[in-house]
Design a protein around this nucleic acid. Structure first.
Lengths: 248, 248
DNA sequence: CGAGACTTTGACCGTAGTCAATTTATGTGG
DNA sequence: CCACATAAATTGACTACGGTCAAAGTCTCG
C-alpha cells in the first residue's frame, strides 16, 4: 500500500535557488552572493548547531526540519516542521536539551542576522519580515496545541496536512495540488501525540474515504475547503498565510 | 471533599503592590507613579482588550489570566496561565478570535511599552527583562505541548502543578509550600486536553497517594523533587526560573 | 432558603495504545 | 540483476486509558 514518507527529494521551491527569499525585490545578486557564503548545510538526521549563549534565529533556505524534544524515557514530542522560508528560534546550547532542530531532508539554513545585515543600511525590511515570520511560527504553535489537545485523531491528521499544504503552497512547493511530505508515520505520531499504529490506521481511513490521496510520499487533498471545517482548520489561516508569506 | 478551584482571592505577591516588579532596583517612586495611571483592571471572566493593528505586550501586575481559543463547536483549549510578573503577547484584534487573554481573578496589567518607557533613557533594562520574560513564556508553550502530547493524565496534572508551584514561588506567592490555584477543574481539563471527569478522578488519585494536598483551593506539593521525575518535569526548569525571574 | 456553579460518583462506551508478527519498500554489496 | 539487511508500513488480537451521560452531592452567595 502507498506510504506517506518518501525520503529525501529536491525539496526546494520552483524556479528559485533561494526558497522563501525568492520574491522579486529580494533578488539582488550581491545579496545572494553574501548568502552563499553563510549557508549552513545539514544532512538528514543532523541537528542544527545552536549558538553558545544566545537564542539563534535561522531562516530555512531549502529542505525540511523539525523541532523536537525527547524525554528521559524516550518519548518524543515533535513541535512542528520548518519549511523553506520559515524562521525558527533555537535555544542557546546551554539548554539545548530542551529543544532541538533536526534536519529531515538535506537542509540549508542561514542565520537571520546575516539576512538582515545584507538588507540595506539598517536591514529594516528583512528585519520586519523576520519578525513577521516568527509571529506566524508562534501562531502555529498555538494551532498545534489545539490539535493535540482538543482534536480527534482524524481531525489532527487532516488539520496538519491542511496546514502543510497551505504553507507549502505559499512557497510554491505544491504543483497541481500535489505536495511531497518527507515525514515517516512514526514522526507524524510523535507530532500529533498518537501512536504509530493509530496514525497508520487513521491515514488508511482518510485514504479510503477519499479525503486524501497518497502516492509515493506525495499527497493530494482533493477538497481542501470541504475538509477544513471537518478538521477545525481555521479558514482564517489560509488568508493570513497568503496575505503574509513571511520571508517569501 | 476538598476541591481545587477556590474562586478569587488576593492573588498578589507578598508585601508588594507591584507583583513581579517588586525587586529593589525597580521600586522608584516616580516609576510607580507612572504605572498607576496606566494599569488596566479586569474583572474575572473579562477578556483583555487587544490593540487594533499590532500585537500587544502586556505585563501582568497582579492576578491570574489564561490564554485560550474556542473552537466553532465549543471545544476549548487553554494554552496556559499568566501570573504576576509574566509578559504575554496578544494578537491584534483583527485575528483576536484565534486567541484571547481572559482574566481568571481580578486582574491588573500594564502595557509593556509603558514599563519600558518608564525605565531610564532608552528603557534598556526593562526592555531586556520583557524580552527575557517572553522567552520564558515561549519555552512554557513547548513544555505544555509535551504535556498534552506525550504525558499521561497523572503526569500532566502533576507536571502543570509543579510548574505553577515554581512560577508562583519565583514571585513569592508560595507560603510554607502552600499556593492558591484559582482554577476550576473544568479549566484544568481544557488546559490539559482531558475531560472534566477524568481530571476529577486524577486529582483524587493524586490526593489519595499523597502526591498533592488540596485544602480549599490551596495546594501543597509535599515532595516536589521526588515527583518532578515521576511527572517528567524538567528539573532544569526550576533552575532557569529562579536564575531568571522575568520581570521579578 | 434557593439558584447556580462546581465537584463527585457510577455505569458504560469507544478511541487510542500495546504487543507481536508480517509485508512492503529502500538500499547495499557482490 | 539478485541476495540480503534494514527501515517503514501494515495487520490482528487484545487492553486500557480516558470520554460520555446522567444523577447526586457541595459550596457560595444573594
Amino acid at each position: 500500500m502507498a506510504t506517506l514518507g518518501g525520503a529525501e527529494m529536491a525539496v526546494t521551491p520552483a524556479g528559485s535557488t533561494f526558497a522563501g527569499l525568492s520574491d522579486a525585490r529580494e533578488l539582488d545578486p550581491k545579496r545572494i552572493q553574501v548568502f552563499w557564503r553563510h549557508v549552513e548545510r545539514y544532512d538528514p538526521g543532523a541537528s542544527v548547531r545552536p549558538a553558545a549563549a544566545t537564542v539563534r534565529r535561522l531562516v530555512v533556505v531549502s529542505g525540511w526540519a523539525y523541532e523536537t524534544r525527547i524525554l528521559p524515557d524516550g518519548r518524543r514530542q515533535i513541535f512542528g516542521f520548518a519549511l523553506p522560508g520559515d524562521v525558527v528560534e533555537l535555544p542557546a546550547s546551554s539548554n539545548y536539551g530542551q529543544r532541538a532542530l533536526v534536519a529531515l531532508t538535506r537542509l540549508e539554513v542561514v542565520d537571520a542576522a546575516v539576512v538582515c545585515r545584507a538588507d540595506g543600511p539598517d536591514g529594516k525590511t528583512a528585519q520586519e519580515a523576520v519578525e513577521r515570520a516568527l509571529q506566524l511560527r508562534s501562531e502555529r504553535l498555538f494551532d498545534h496545541m489545539v490539535r493535540i489537545g482538543r482534536l480527534t485523531s482524524k481531525e489532527r491528521v487532516l488539520n496538519l496536512l491542511l496546514e502543510l499544504h497551505d504553507r507549502l503552497r505559499a512557497v510554491h512547493l505544491v504543483k497541481d495540488g500535489v505536495f511531497r511530505v518527507p515525514v515517516t508515520q512514526e514522526m507524524f505520531a510523535d507530532t500529533l501525540g498518537l501512536s504509530i499504529v493509530h496514525i497508520n490506521r487513521t491515514l488508511q481511513r482518510l485514504r479510503r474515504d477519499g479525503s486524501i490521496v497518497v502516492r509515493g510520499g506525495a499527497v493530494t487533498i482533493p477538497h481542501p475547503d470541504r475538509l477544513a471545517s471537518a478538521a477545525c482548520y481555521p479558514a482564517t489561516w489560509a488568508r493570513a498565510a497568503s496575505a503574509n508569506q513571511g520571508l517569501a
